[in-house]
């Protein structure tokens, strides 16, 4: 079980013209793990996420999802691999012209042939799991930012994905709402054994939810360390890591 890797990033290099953002990045994510990717601004976190979810193809290297090479997959194959993902985007990505229920239904309609009644029940289950059962007929603009995040999470989970990706889930949320979202992530991970890959800056969140942390830095254009959050918090031998996790500004 320990070595049941669901995602493997092998020698990932990403270049945009002359600019190299990531160079020779390697890591593996275990099934059912909450894996957090951290790093300062401009270190390539979002670039890495785009490669992981198949929105971009790395210049070199490959991304394996359950052993299937996402980077070299044909259009059809990559679509089928991508059905294993649920993604919670930083700005939610909820369709403003649809109700919360319709947003969740959209994911179901495009990938399943469920009848109306069953689909409706699944929407209820999804919204219930994020505590929004009473807001099915509300539009995104009619609910708070925290609720929008949860609604987007319900949509991301609509197809029971094996992997959930989160891009800055707590951005724009107050500490209490962010903490409630963390609790929900932990509950869903424990209950559903869904692998969670989270990109975040929020230290409180990292320390609360993560099983393992990967830290990127732009000085090396890649990974500077990887480990359990408590190890990284006390990693005095690496100044960059220690300062990041203890919120100590770098000199100069």
């Amino acid at each position: 079980m320990e070595d049941d890797f669901i995602i493997e990033a092998q020698n990932i290099t990403v270049r945009y013209g002359e600019l190299t953002v990531l160079e020779d990045v390697n890591f593996k994510i275990r099934r059912g793990e909450i894996f957090v990717i951290v790093g300062g601004s401009g270190c390539g976190k979002s670039t890495l996420l785009r490669q992981l979810i198949g929105l971009e193809v790395p210049t070199e290297g490959q991304i394996l999802i359950e052993g299937e090479n996402l980077s070299e997959a044909s259009q059809d194959d990559s679509s089928s691999i991508m059905k294993k993902f649920g993604i919670l985007f930083q700005s939610n990505g909820l369709f403003a012209s649809m109700t919360i229920g319709e947003n969740v239904k959209l994911a179901l309609d495009s990938n399943t042939s469920l009848d109306e009644e069953t689909a409706d029940r699944i929407i209820d289950i999804k919204l219930n799991s994020v505590g929004l059962i009473n807001y099915k007929n509300f539009y995104p603009s009619e609910i708070s930012g925290g609720m929008q995040k949860r609604a987007a999470l319900a949509r991301a989970m609509a197809l029971d994905p094996d992997i959930l990706f989160f891009d800055e889930p707590s951005s724009g949320l107050d500490p209490l709402t962010a903490s409630a979202l963390d609790k929900l992530i932990i509950e869903l991970n424990a209950g559903l054994n869904t692998t969670m890959v989270i990109i975040t800056h929020d230290l409180a969140s990292i320390l609360t939810i993560s099983h393992r942390v990967l830290m990127l830095d732009k000085s090396v254009k890649g990974v500077i360390t990887e480990g359990k959050p408590e190890e990284l918090l006390n990693m005095k031998e690496n100044e960059l890591v220690y300062n990041f996790f203890n919120r100590i500004p770098m000199e100069g």
Partner: peptide, 17 residues
């Protein structure tokens, strides 16, 4: 059973809208 306990809606609240 754990899966059902986690996800099955507990009570049917009245929709507010």
């Amino acid at each position: 059973q754990s899966y059902l306990d986690l996800l099955m809606p507990k009570d049917e609240a009245e929709p507010e809208k």
